[in-house]
Nucleic acid binder design. Structure first.
Lengths: 346, 346
DNA sequence: AAGTAGCACTCGAAGTGATAGAGTGCTAAT
DNA sequence: ATTAGCACTCTATCACTTCGAGTGCTACTT
C-alpha cells in the first residue's frame, strides 16, 4: 500500500524536523533533513512533504525564505506518537539518587533536591510540590507544656511526618486539661485524614452542649492552629539560571513572564494540583496551556505516590523547544524515586 | 572662602548627576544638570566642574560624546556623604508591617515576607536570612515516643523557637531510658547556647566511663540529630522579576550572573554572615564587592537583632544604579520590624 | 506516478553610507 | 569666575544594497 508508505515517511520527516529544531534552535531546511535521514531522499522531495506537513498545521515557516519550525500541534504529534521512550543512563540515574538522598531526612530538603535534580539533568527548570498532607492520616497528637501559658502541639501522621505549632493561650492554663484534650483527640481522630478532621469536629460541635461544648471548642482550636492545619504546601523551583541560557530567553522581555510565573507560584500550584489527581506523565505544550504567560513554554508534570496514594507532583518547565524524550524520562524516574524515598522516610 | 564654595558646588553637582542617572538610566549631560539645579549655572560651568569630577574618578563618560555616569567611587561618595537620609512614607511602613505580619506565626513565612516586602517597596531583589540559631539558648528538650522504635525529639529555645527531629533507633528502645536522657539534658544544658552544647557534651564524654559513658553517648546522639543541630539556615530571595525589569538586565547575559548568585546562594550566605557580625547598614557598591559575578550590582545589608543579639541579616540586591536612599531606609526599617516581630514571637 | 534537478524568486540578516543630534572641550568675551 | 559660541566627536538611526539560505514551481527522468 502506498498510503502506508507516504504516511510513515511524513512521520519520519516530522520527527526529524522536531529533533533537529530541538537540537539547534534554528529553523530547519529541506537540505538538512535530506542529509539527516539516510533514506536518500532529495531536498526537493522533502520539500513536497513539508508542504503537506505545513497544510496539516504541524510545522510552519517563521518567514517565507526560512526553514520550518514545529508548531504546538507538531510537538504534540511528536510527543504522542513519534517519540520513542528513552531511558536515562546509569550515570544520570545515580546522580538523581544522590541529589535526592544527600539531603538527609528532611522532607523539604528532599523535595528541593528533587527539583534541583530535574533541572540538572534536563537543563530546564525543575519544580516540585511538597506532599499534600491533607491526604495523610492522623496518627497522634501530643501537647507539651513550655511555660505557664504556652504549649507546643505536635502532630504525627501515619506516614511519619511531624508538624508542630505553638499554642499561646495568653492566660494561665491547666496542663491537665490540655492533656485530656489530647487524649480525646487521639481517641477520636485515629485513622482520619487530616483534610476531614476539621469538618468532622465541626459537625460534632453542633450536637454538643455546655461543658463538653467548651471542651470540644478547645480541641478544635488546637487542631486548627495554622501550622498544623494549613499544610503550607511549598513549591520548590530550581534551575532558572541554566534554563535561561536557552536562546529563546535572550531578550529578557520573554523571560520575565516565565520568571514571574515561577516566582509567584500560584498559577503553577493550581496546575500541579490538578495534574496530581491523575496518574502518570502529562505534557502541556505551548498554547495548550491555560496559563497565558507561558504560552511559549512547555510543562511536563507527574504525580508521585506514597503507599499507593498520589500526594504530590513534580514538573519540568522550559521553552516549547525542549528535549521531550529526556525530560519525560527524567520526570518519570524522579516520580518513582521520590515515592520510594518518602515511603522509606515514613 | 572660595574653596568651600567650589567644594560644595562640586558636591551638589555630583549629587545631581547621581540622582538623575538613578532616575533615568541615561548618561546625564551638562544641560540636564543646569536645569535640575536651580542655581542658575550654565551648562558650560557645569561642564568645567564635570571635568574635575571626572579627574577625581567620581564620574565617567561611556564614550566621548555622551553624558556622564557615576563610577563606583562616585556612588560611594554619594552614599557616604551626600545622601540625606529619607524616611519611608506611612503607606510604605504599613505595607511592610502587613507583609511581614500576615504570614502568621511561622518563622519561615515571616522571613520570606520580609524579603518580599523589601522587594515590593524598593523594586530590587529582597533577601533575608533566617535567624542563626546557634546563638539562641537551649531551654528544654522533650522526647516523645511515636512507636516501638521511633521517637520524636522536640527542642525549645529560649526565644520560643521550636525544632524537632525524628529519632529512628532501628531497634526496640525503652521509653523510660530516653526519658532519663531527656531529664539529664534538661538539667545540664539549661541556658547554654546551641552552638556550645556539642562541644560541652563532647568534653564531658572524655571524663566519663562505663555505663554512664553509654548513657552520655546516647544523649549526644540525640542532640546531634541533623534537624536539631544543623540549624539549616535558609536564604529567602524574592522580587527577581521586578528587578529584572531594569534596563541594565535587558540582555540576559548580564542578568544570568546575578540570577545564578541568587539561586546558588552560597556566596550570598557568606557575605551575609560576615555583615551580620557588625551593627547597622552596610553598603557594597559594584566592584567593591568580593563576589566577582555581581560587580555591576550593589548590595545593601543590615543585621537584625532579637533581645539585643544580632542573629540574622537581610539585604537588598540590585543594579549599581539603585535608589540608595529609599533602599537604605527600607532595609533599616525592616531590620527593626523584623527584630520586634521575632521578639514578640519568642 | 513518484522522484529529482534546476531555476527564479522571496525575504531576512548583515553590511554600508549618510544624517541628525546630543554632548563635549576650548576660546574669547563679559 | 562665568558664560556664550563654536567646532568637533561620536552614536543612533535610517535607507539602501548585497548575500545567501531556503522555498515553490516546472520540466525532466525513471
Amino acid at each position: 500500500m502506498k498510503q502506508v508508505d507516504i504516511e510513515s515517511r511524513r512521520r519520519g520527516i516530522l520527527a526529524a524536523i522536531v529533533e533537529s529544531y530541538i537540537g539547534t534552535a534554528t529553523p530547519v531546511g529541506s537540505r538538512v533533513i535530506s542529509q539527516r535521514l539516510r533514506g536518500g531522499l532529495s531536498p526537493a522531495t522533502i520539500r513536497n512533504v513539508m508542504v503537506d506537513l505545513e497544510e496539516m498545521g504541524l510545522i510552519m515557516q517563521p518567514h517565507t525564505s526560512a526553514g520550518r519550525v514545529p508548531t504546538d500541534k507538531g510537538y504534540r504529534t511528536y510527543v504522542d506518537s513519534l517519540l520513542e521512550p528513552i531511558r536515562l543512563t546509569k550515570d544520570e540515574e545515580s546522580l538523581i539518587l544522590k541529589l535526592v538522598d544527600q539531603s538527609g531526612q528532611d522532607l523539604d530538603s528532599i523535595i528541593q533536591g528533587a527539583s534541583r535534580a530535574i533541572s540538572v539533568i534536563t537543563n530546564v527548570a525543575g519544580v516540585a510540590l511538597t506532599p499534600r498532607l491533607k491526604k495523610s492520616v492522623f496518627e497522634h497528637i501530643e501537647i507539651i507544656p513550655i511555660d505557664s501559658s504556652r504549649f507546643l502541639a505536635v502532630l504525627v501522621t501515619s506516614s511519619g511526618l511531624v508538624k508542630n505549632a505553638m499554642l499561646d493561650s495568653g492566660e494561665e492554663m491547666a496542663g491537665s486539661e490540655l492533656a485530656r484534650v489530647a487524649e480525646f483527640l487521639n481517641q477520636e481522630l485515629n485513622g482520619m485524614s487530616l483534610g476531614d478532621i476539621k469538618h468532622y469536629l465541626a459537625r460534632r460541635l453542633l450536637q454538643e452542649r455546655d461543658s463538653f461544648y467548651a471542651f470540644l471548642k478547645k480541641a478544635i482550636d488546637i487542631v486548627s492552629l495554622p501550622n498544623l492545619s494549613r499544610m503550607e504546601d511549598h513549591l520548590y523551583c530550581e534551575g532558572l539560571t541554566c534554563m535561561m541560557a536557552n536562546p529563546e530567553f535572550k531578550d529578557m522581555s520573554k523571560a520575565r513572564l516565565l520568571l514571574r510565573l515561577l516566582e509567584e507560584k500560584k498559577d503553577l500550584f493550581n496546575l500541579l494540583y490538578e495534574d496530581m489527581e491523575s496518574e502518570g506523565i502529562k505534557v502541556h505544550i505551548g498554547r495548550e496551556n491555560a496559563i497565558k504567560d507561558i504560552q511559549d513554554c512547555s510543562l511536563i508534570t507527574c504525580n508521585y505516590k506514597v503507599n499507593g496514594v498520589s500526594i504530590g507532583a513534580i514538573a519540568a518547565v522550559g521553552p516549547t523547544r525542549m528535549e521531550y524524550g529526556k525530560v519525560m524520562a527524567t520526570v518519570r524516574y524522579m516520580s518513582e524515586v521520590l515515592g520510594k524515598v518518602l515511603e522509606r522516610l515514613g
